[in-house]
């Protein structure tokens, strides 16, 4: 058994500098379209977006990142690609004041997160799972995964909420004690993604539960989910709405 101990120590520290500093390694994020002025190419770009995440007014494209499913059709195979930003601090709140006080000070550094898969494709869930690996190690920030809603402070939902999971999801939320927050992770959980809206899928979690924090991306990388969780407990500022690309300014 000692071989494992030695190996473990010998590996050294791999953990990201985030949230103290920025993570600059390549490949940690797929990025999000940024929008902007593309002039005459705008209508063609908007046309190419199959999930209607893009809109344009006078050549200026605005992005609804909740609908973006990372198909890259607005940057690949087109003459004039859209701006694309390799950021990862994507967690944003759906407004409502009083959010700061809801979980309260005692919860800031010890949060039990319950993850519910409500029809996820496996990618978001895999990215949530990565938060436990040494690169991200969410424990150091006081986040713990719990299997039971009784211990949970934050409900993290991935997936568009399928018909047969809707009941279970409501039951989970119901079983959690207050104060509780709901974090919806991934484009599917925010808008239903490519599956919405059908006879078996909702238009995302908000159709079923009140959502407090949204993390766009398809899937959002681990750092974005981490940011979402930090936003949920008030330890990070949410992404300004404009930067998230919801509304053109």
């Amino acid at each position: 058994m000692s071989q494992w101990v030695i190996k473990g120590i010998g590996t050294g520290i791999k953990t990201t500098a985030y949230p103290r500093g920025a993570e600059r390694a390549a490949g940690v994020t797929p990025g999000l379209p940024r929008g902007g002025d593309v002039g005459a190419a705008a209508p063609a770009l908007v046309e190419r977006c199959l999930t209607h995440a893009l809109e344009h007014t006078n050549g200026v494209i605005s992005v609804d990142s909740r609908r973006c499913v990372h198909c890259y059709r607005c940057v690949r195979g087109v003459g004039q690609p859209l701006n694309w930003e390799a950021t990862y601090e994507w967690g944003s709140t759906i407004a409502t004041p009083g959010l700061k006080n809801e979980l309260g000070q005692p919860f800031r550094r010890s949060i039990h997160v319950l993850v519910v898969d409500a029809g996820d494709c496996g990618a978001c869930l895999n990215e949530v799972k990565q938060l436990n690996n040494p690169y991200y190690n969410m424990h150091r920030l006081g986040f713990f995964i719990t299997p039971t809603p009784r211990h949970a402070d934050v409900l993290l939902v991935v997936g568009p909420v399928t018909d047969q999971m809707r009941f279970a999801l409501r039951k989970v939320h119901e079983a959690m004690s207050t104060p509780k927050r709901v974090v919806a992770v991934g484009a599917c959980a925010l808008s239903g993604g490519v599956f919405a809206k059908s006879f078996v899928c909702s238009n995302g979690v908000a159709d079923v539960l009140p959502v407090d924090v949204e993390v766009p991306g398809h899937p959002p990388p681990p750092l974005a989910i981490l940011h979402g969780l930090l936003v949920a407990v008030g330890r990070k500022q949410p992404l300004p709405l404009a930067a998230a690309g919801y509304e053109p300014t």
Partner: peptide, 14 residues
């Protein structure tokens, strides 16, 4: 705080 009674947790079965 408000006390609330909740159903037992059963893993989300119907």
């Amino acid at each position: 705080r408000r006390l609330a009674r909740r159903e037992r947790w059963d893993g989300g079965v119907r």
